[in-house]
Each structure stands twice: as structure tokens, then as C-alpha cells.
Amino acid sequence: METIGLAKRFKDVEALRGLDLVIAEATVLGVLGPNGAGKTTAVRILTTLLRPDGGRAFVDGIDVVAEPHRVRARIGLTGQDAAVDERLTGRENLDYVGRLHHLGPRMSRQRAGELLDQFDLADAGDRVVKGYSGGMRRRLDIAMSLVARPSVLFLDEPTTGLDPRSRLAMWDLIADLVAEGTTTLLTTQNLEEADRLADRIAVINRGSVIAEGGPDELKQRMGGSRIEIEVRDPADADGAVEALWPLCAEGCRVRRQGRVVTLPVTDGAQLVPEVVRAMDAAGIAIDDVAMRRPTLDDVFLNLTGHRADEAQDQAPEPARP
């Protein structure tokens, strides 16, 4: 799957400006970007739902604009909103999609059963989807996009809106799929998610790729984790910086901003107790100490020098009909 210089504009918003993406077979590409970066637009073009204004896109070497029908036979799409029929049961939803893929009644039924088992929905399979939890719906939604064993799977923000537990479960599930060799394009706003699931990550901002590479490679460029402490008395902040210097690895700098003092760390929560002891020893009272992993915001700060999102010319995402 490949896109070359993809461009798309909606009235006065340039959603994509020359987007280049490639996924090698049986790998996962994580497309990481803030809200409004153009992730969904790219997915919708690749899944034949939207025509690009410029550039080209191929799935399995097939042009999505010229031969949408052939592309549709090879892809599975799990969009941002769960696309399930709430009035049907889980099994009926799967069976229905199988029939629309022309698998035939017998094969559709069989595939529905397999997927219910695989996605841990066997018990709920004969209940109407209306009563499903958010996590169950999302699982069913993904199962529906796998009915015809697609050669490329598109997952558009599969964990957005899930509670932390369902999110972890979803990560395991996606990791399993990926282990089976499903070529996958996964979009996300969550750095940790891309890190966990993707073989390669493309960071996109305002419709084009601003960084691309393996997760480790990128994390290095993005800056690692850090420990932040909040001292009770602002007057102590300089003392805290002083006290933390010895814990700093080579080339690292302790920084302060108001009452918050930040210590970059390469790995590990094991430094947290040492930080607390150091403060104790220096007789500095602290209100808070926390380990912070780099977030998408940090990535953007590092890559672009400004924070994500608040790019002035981007309207907030409108509700699509």
C-alpha cells in the first residue's frame, strides 16, 4: 500500500498537502498525528470513500481512484465511529457483512462463528448490539472488517474513546492480528499506542508527514521520559535543581519552571525513590512527584518547535453527516 503526494482540500481547509506513505507487506504503519492532522481523510481516500484532489494512492498495486471496486475487495475498514447495525446481533452483523462480500450463506455463517470466538464475543454473539459496551462494539467493528480476510486492514483511531482497560485489551487484540501477518494502517493520537503496535511510524501534521521511522528511532528524536517534581515553596526550586544534578545522566540538564523541576531520564521509574530521597536529604518539601512519558505534545514540540493542534488555520473537526 502506498500513497504519493496525496492532496485534498475541503473548501478553505487543506486537509492533505502532499502526503507520502508506504506500508510493507505484513507490517503495521502507525500514522500518528493530532486531531485535524488529516488521518481520517487519508484513510477515507485509501478506502475509496473519498476522491483525492491530487496525488495517487495504491492498495496492492491497484489504483484506488481508477479501480475502487477491486480495491474494496482487498481492504477492511474500521472507521472512527463504530459502523455496526445496533438492531442486529453480533453474529448477524458479521454474517451480513460476509454476504455482502459474496462469501455465500454457509461460509458467511462459519466465518461469523470463527470471528466471534477470536474476538471474545462468543457469549454475546446472539445478543443485540444495542446492549454492547463500547469495547465490545469496537471489537465487533474490527471483526466485521476482517470477515473477508483483507490484505490491508485500516484502523482509524481504534482506541479513541475507550476506557483504559478496554484500551489495553484492544492493544493485545491488535497485536495478535498483527502477529498473524495482517498488513495494517493504524491511526492514532497516542504515542504509546503507536510505539506498542507499529513497526514504523509516520508522524503527520497539517496534512503531511513531518517525521518517519521505527519507533525507537523516533523516540530518540522525540526526547525520552522525565521525572517531574513540584516543590511546595517556590524559593526551594533552585535548591531542588542543585540536589538533582547528581542523578542526571551525561549530557542531561535539569530544568525548572515555577515550582516544577524536571529531570530527564533514559529509563525508569526506579529513579523516582532516589529523587524523593534526594529531596528529603536536602530538606525540601514536595507536593508532587511523577514520572512522565513523552506525549504527542512533546513530540510536536520537539519536531516543529510549537505545540500540536492550535495551528491557527485549522478549524475544529466538524461532525460529518
Binding site: 470513500l49 474494496r72 475487495a73 475498514l77 472507521g79 455496526v84 455482502l100
Partner: peptide, 15 residues
């Protein structure tokens, strides 16, 4: 169907 996003799925199917 439009509201629920189901139509989006249907449009991505080879039907």
C-alpha cells in the same frame, strides 16, 4: 444508517 457510520462501511465493501 448515515448517522451511525454504517453507510461508510457499506461504501467500502465490494457490493
Amino acid at each position: 444508517d448515515m448517522q451511525k457510520g454504517l453507510i461508510e462501511r457499506l461504501r467500502s465493501l465490494p457490493m
